[in-house]
Design a binder for these strands. Sequence first.
RNA 1: UCCGCAGUAGCUCAAUGGUAGAGCAUUCGGCUGUUAACCGAAGGGUUGUAGGUUCGAGUCCUACCUGCGGAGCCA
Length: 449
Amino acid sequence: MATESKSLETTKAAQTYISELSRHVGKEVVLKGWLYNLRSSGKIVFPQLRDGTGIVQGVALKNTVTPEVWEALQGLGQESSLIIRGTVRADERAPGGFEVDVVDAQVLQQVHDYPITPKEHGTEFLMDQRHLWLRSRRSHAVLKVRHTIVQAVRNFFDNDGFTLADAPILTPAACEGTTTLFEVDYFEGEKAYLTQSGQLYNEATAAAFGKAYCFGPTFRAEKSKTRRHLTEFWMVEPEMAYASLEDVMSLAERMLSNVAARVLADRAEELKVLERETSKLESIRIPFPRLHYDDAVKMLQEGHAAGALESRFEWGGDFGAPDESYISNRFNKPLMVHHYPASVKAFYMARDPERAELALGVDVLAPEGYGEVIGGGERATSLEFLKEQLALHKLPQEAFEWYLDLRRYGSVPHAGFGMGIERCTAWMCGIEHIRETIPFPRMLYRIRP
RNA sequence: UCCGCAGUAGCUCAAUGGUAGAGCAUUCGGCUGUUAACCGAAGGGUUGUAGGUUCGAGUCCUACCUGCGGAGCCA
């Protein structure tokens, strides 16, 4: 239910954004946005305007505005689009510190039935209304933090000598397992899949640029229904030629501490909206604790003996969610667990020369139960070893010939990692659900809106 | 795929097996400083679907549907 406004004359006026109001105190400005909330008290109304950069309260008195303006503001519903002309005034009573004394107002569209009210709502309902929920303070704050994380990550790599060289999204074969691929039926005589990692292509670009990274969407057809999973998520993957496991761990901790510092500096307001304890982010500083898989297993077995864990963890397995939480909760910083058994890691992982059963891999486990945010390691360099591994993992060698070429022509030690942007965002924001960290989440049982 | 939980007004939730209710939202009225404003009034329901038990089912039973949480797997 909506009524169109007839005259849009004032839309031509130069717009001031709410975030810039401090520079316009005492001056007249034109604000263009949407009604966040309206309160009225007889002969005074308080329209709260939202414009994407902030929220500000306007004040209109019946005897200081024209009858037309007064009438236009009466009974205006949430998210009505409108333009306000008024004078900026510093006011301690206002949440943002400023108010606007309304001189003129132009309603572009009156709205009366906006579905998201200022009261509580369930997640299912809000997710169905995601296209509108994005306008809320909370979504706005989370996505602003995401934006800053992406920006910080890219700046970090750009300033560290990395070249952005994106990996393809349509691929002919799996990078890791074949069970979690989305199949695309388009290329003649051949099946294609949506990428589940840019990893293998990064190894090619690292050999071309020395240090390269890709940043893009990733698809996993996992039947996972947890707060840590999306079927479509964004991943940043750096890869370095002439680099070791040690180099990758150092890169990961430098990047994460850099990102945390950026979020603290640029998104203080948003962290406040999200009621995030900033001390948790302040502790994300170099160096991060490092734990050998053997020692992690010992820690888990002691945990079981002390009654903190239900089942006794045996050497050789991969950690389950409760195991991860138990270990990472013993540290107040991100924890780097390295030297996993090769059997639980991907085929391209390099082996520990001293102990062939160990892979030179590392997982970075975020504190507070956020789990694995980074996975990476050193890659195998030997052509023969990789051929064996492909066979062992029952992967078709023809599909990987181009990859094997990287070992035929100038094979060097190299290493890299992948970080899930959404998991990182959920952690920095301190929110329960990863699905709030992406504008339009795709999950098992959710492809709309 | 497996285990557990839930579906009642637009939304969030109540309702011993006995007349289906409240707050918010909406509509109307009141209020010159409201902060999820407040006060008064009105409209709003095939209780997820289909069966069953019962004099009587929102409530008990069965199946299905939808969603949520977790496991496995992963970032």
